[in-house]
Design a protein around this nucleic acid. Structure first.
Lengths: 417, 417
DNA sequence: AGGGGTTAGGAAAGGGGCTTTATAAAGTCG
DNA sequence: CGACTTTATAAAGCCCCTTTCCTAACCCCT
C-alpha cells in the first residue's frame, strides 16, 4: 500500500496546469489559477517551470480591466515531440505528436497473419517509429518519449508483456526488445489504459474524478479513472470488463468462459447478433468486421429495419453491461470509445442510453452522463503518447536543487555585506 | 476533482499508525516505523499526538538487544468510546466500543413491520444509544462520536437518506432528526461502506490498497477499497454490485430489473435456488431466511446432497459475479462478509473459489485472494464506529497553531538576550 | 563501581510544497 | 503626471516528512 508524498501533489498539479494550457491555449496565469484552484503563486512557479522546459512559451498580453495586462502563455508546440504506438492484432499504428498533441506524422504497418513473433512486431514498430521521425523532420533530441500500447496484460515496471491473447505471447520482454531499436524513453501499457488516459487529458473525462472509458473494438474493455487517476489494480490488469459475464452460460468467448460481454458487443459479437437475426443479410461481410460495422451504420442511416434491430439488440447488451459499471463504480461520465463506437455513433448512443436507463439504479444513473468519445484519431496512439508526456513531466524538478542552494547561500551572505 | 493537500498525508499517516497500534497492542515506535514505512521521527510525532489525545498510553518497556529499552505504547481502551449503529429492515443494532474496538455494551431494538416512519426509526436508535451509554457506564464526554449505517443511498455531506429501499424513504433528513436526540458527533453512511471500512481497519483488507468486501445478507452489495481508500463514486453510491446483471432476462429483482446478482445469491435468492431444486425440501423455512440458511449450513455439514447442491449452485452464481469484480477491479483480496457468508462459511468459500477460478481471467485471478471475513461482530456496527473514529482523528492538529507561534517567538528572542 | 558499546528517542536542520503578504511592474484614467 | 488597478514575482510562514546529531538508558566487561 503506497504512501503518497508531497512530491506527488506537485506532479499532479504540474499535470493539471499543463492539461489546462493544452486545452485552452493561449491562457493567462489568472485563468489557470481559477481553473485549477491553486494559488497564483503556485501557478506562477509551475508556469515558470514549464517555460524553462520550453514546453510552453509566452505569446503576448491580454488587456486587464485597467491594470497591468495579463501575460499569456501557450503550448510551445514545437518544443518537443511525442510518439504514440498502437500495436493491434493486424496492424501497428504510429503517430508523432507535437506538444499540442497535433499529429505531425503518421505511419501504419500491416501485419500478415502468422507474423506474430515478437521480433517481427518489434521490427514493424521500429520501422514505423523511424518513419514518423523522418517524415516530420524533427530532431531526435526533441523526441521526449515513445508510448507503446500493446494488447493484453502488461507489467509496466518490468516492461514485460505478460500475456497477449492475439499471438499467445507469454512473458515477452517487450521493452527490452524495443529498446534495442529505439533510443527514446519508452513507456508500455495496454490500450484500455491508454484510451482512458487520453480521455482524461484531452477527452470527455477531463476534470472528472470518476470516469469509465468503454472501449468497443474487436475486443472490448474499459479503462477506469477513479479518484482522479487511472485505476490499474494490483497487477495492472483492471478494466477487463469485456470478460465479465452478462449471460450465464451464454456464448463461448475466446477467453474460454461463456457469456462474456465481449461476445455480444465486440465487433464479432455484433456480427453474430446480425447473423442470428438474419443469417443471409447483405449487411454481413463474413470475413470483414470493418465492412460489416460500416454496412450496419449505413443501414441505420438509411432506415434499414434489420440494421436498426441489430443496433438495438447490441445496445441492449451494451446497456445492461454499462449499467453494471454504473452501479458498481458510480462514475460521473461513461465514454464510448474506439472504432465500433465511432462508426455506429449517435444511433448506438441513443439506444445505449435508453438501455442503461432501464437497467441501472436511479441514483447512480442520475449522476452519470454517457457520451461518445470526441477524440478524432486513434485513442490508443494518443493515450500512449500521453504516457510519454506524463513520463517527461514526472522527471522534472529533481535537478534544480543546486541552483536553489546557491541562491539561498547568496541571499544569506548579502545582508552581512 | 479534489486536490490533495499535505494535510491529507498527515491524516492518512495518523490513521495508519493508530490502525497499527490497535492491531498490535502493545507495540514500540520501532515496530510502527517498520510497519508503516515512516521515519522514526514522524512516528514519534504521531505517537506523541495520540498520547496527547489520550487515545494511547505508554505501558512499559521492552528489552532491546543490549541498548536502551524500547518504550511500548498501547491503545488506551478507556480513553474514549465509539458508538456504532446498524439500522436494518427489521432491527436496529447499537454497539458501544472502547478505543480498542472491544464491544462494551450492546442494544438491539426490533422493529415491527409497518414501523417505518423516520421518526419511529430514530426513536429506536436514540433509545438504544442511550441504553448502551448507561450500560457501559461511560461518561458522555468520553463518547467521541456515533456512526450510523443506514441502507440505501446516503448523502454524507448533508446527512440525508436519499433513498432507502425497505421503507421507501425519499430524501429523509436523517442526520437532522438524529441530532435532535443525540448530542454526540454523528457520521452517516451505508452498510456497504461501513463493512468495507471495518475490513480495511480491522479485517482481511488491512494493508491492501485494492480490496472488495462482498456483503452477503438479505440484500447484497460490495464495499470497494481502491487505491488505499474507500471508493464512494461521484454520488456516494458505488458498490451496488448486487444489482448488476448476471443473467440477462433472469429472475425479477425488487429493483425492477431482471437477473440481478442479488436474486441469486441474497438470502431470498438462495431460498429460491433451493425451491427450484427441491420445492418440498425440509430445509426450506418459507418465512424465515435465517432458519433456512442455518438449515442449509447444517445440511452441508451432515452431507445432505440437496444442501450441498444448493450451496454449489449458489457458489456458481456467486463465483461468476465475483469473477466480474475481479476482472474489472483486479483487487488484491475479496472478503466475503455478512451473515449469510458467516453461516455458510468454509463450504461456500471452497465452492466459490472454484467457481471464480473457472470464470476469471488468469492474471487478475492469480493476484486475488478470496477469504471469509474474520470480524466476529456485526460489521456494519464496527464500520460505523470506525467512521466515528476517523472523524475524531481527522479534526486533530488544527488548534496547535497558537502554541507553535508562541514557541517560535520565544526562540527568536532568546539568542538576543 | 565505572567506563565503553549499543539501542532508543528527541531536537534541530533541511528539503519540498502551498499560501498569504508585500513589493515591483505595467497599464488606465482623471 | 500622479493616483488607482491589476498582474507578477519575491519573501516569509506554515505544514509535511526525513536525515542527522545528540542525549538517555541500559548492558556488559573490566
Amino acid at each position: 500500500m503506497k504512501r503518497g508524498t508531497s512530491r506527488d501533489i506537485r506532479t499532479a498539479n504540474r499535470y493539471e496546469v499543463l492539461r489546462q494550457i493544452i486545452a485552452a491555449s493561449p491562457t493567462s496565469r489568472q485563468q489557470l489559477a481559477a481553473a485549477t484552484g491553486l494559488s497564483l503563486a503556485t501557478v506562477a512557479t509551475l508556469v515558470g517551470e514549464l517555460l524553462d522546459l520550453r514546453m510552453i512559451t509566452e505569446v503576448g498580453f491580454e488587456d486587464s480591466a485597467g491594470g497591468r495586462p495579463r501575460g499569456l502563455v501557450a503550448v510551445n508546440a514545437s518544443g518537443g515531440a511525442l510518439i504514440g504506438v498502437d500495436i493491434a492484432e493486424t496492424y501497428v499504428h504510429v503517430e508523432l505528436f507535437d506538444l499540442a498533441l497535433n499529429v505531425l506524422a503518421r505511419a501504419e504497418e500491416n501485419m500478415r497473419p502468422g507474423e506474430s513473433r515478437p521480433e517481427q512486431v518489434v521490427a514493424h514498430v521500429a520501422a514505423a517509429a523511424g518513419s514518423v521521425v523522418t517524415q516530420a523532420g524533427v530532431e531526435a533530441a526533441r523526441v521526449l518519449g515513445v508510448g507503446v500500447s500493446v494488447p493484453g496484460q502488461v507489467d509496466r515496471a518490468t516492461g514485460i508483456s505478460e500475456y497477449a491473447p492475439n499471438w499467445d505471447w507469454h512473458d515477452v520482454p517487450l521493452l527490452d526488445l524495443l529498446s534495442e531499436h529505439i533510443a527514446y524513453p519508452l513507456y508500455l501499457d495496454n490500450p484500455l489504459r491508454a484510451g482512458a488516459v487520453a480521455e482524461l487529458w484531452f477527452g470527455a473525462a477531463r476534470g472528472h474524478g470518476d470516469a469509465v472509458v468503454v472501449n468497443l473494438g474487436t475486443g472490448v474493455g474499459a479503462g477506469l479513472v477513479l479518484g482522479g487517476g487511472l485505476h490499474r489494480g494490483v497487477s495492472n490488469s483492471a478494466g477487463e470488463w469485456g470478460h465479465t459475464t452478462l449471460v450465464l452460460d451464454g456464448r463461448l468467448c475466446r477467453c474460454g468462459n461463456h457469456g462474456c460481454v465481449e461476445t455480444y458487443v465486440g465487433a464479432p459479437g455484433i456480427m453474430q447478433n446480425l447473423r442470428e437475426l438474419s443469417p443471409r443479410s447483405p449487411l454481413l461481410h463474413p470475413d470483414d468486421q470493418t465492412a460489416t460495422i460500416d454496412a450496419l451504420a449505413a443501414g441505420v442511416a438509411a432506415g434499414d429495419p434489420v440494421a436498426v434491430k441489430v443496433v438495438r439488440d447490441t445496445a441492449r447488451y451494451l446497456g445492461a453491461s454499462i449499467a453494471n459499471l454504473v452501479n458498481v463504480l458510480n462514475p460521473e461520465v461513461v465514454v464510448l470509445s474506439s472504432w465500433v463506437a465511432a462508426r455506429l455513433g449517435e444511433p448506438l448512443l441513443d439506444e445505449v442510453r435508453e438501455a442503461v436507463a432501464r437497467h441501472a439504479l436511479k441514483r447512480p444513473l442520475a449522476a452519470s452522463r454517457i457520451v461518445l468519445s470526441t477524440i478524432p484519431t486513434d485513442p490508443a496512439c494518443l493515450g500512449a503518447a500521453t504516457f510519454a508526456l506524463e513520463g517527461a513531466l514526472r522527471s522534472v524538478g529533481q535537478r534544480s536543487a543546486k541552483r536553489a542552494a546557491f541562491a539561498q547561500a547568496r541571499s544569506r551572505t548579502a545582508p552581512s555585506a
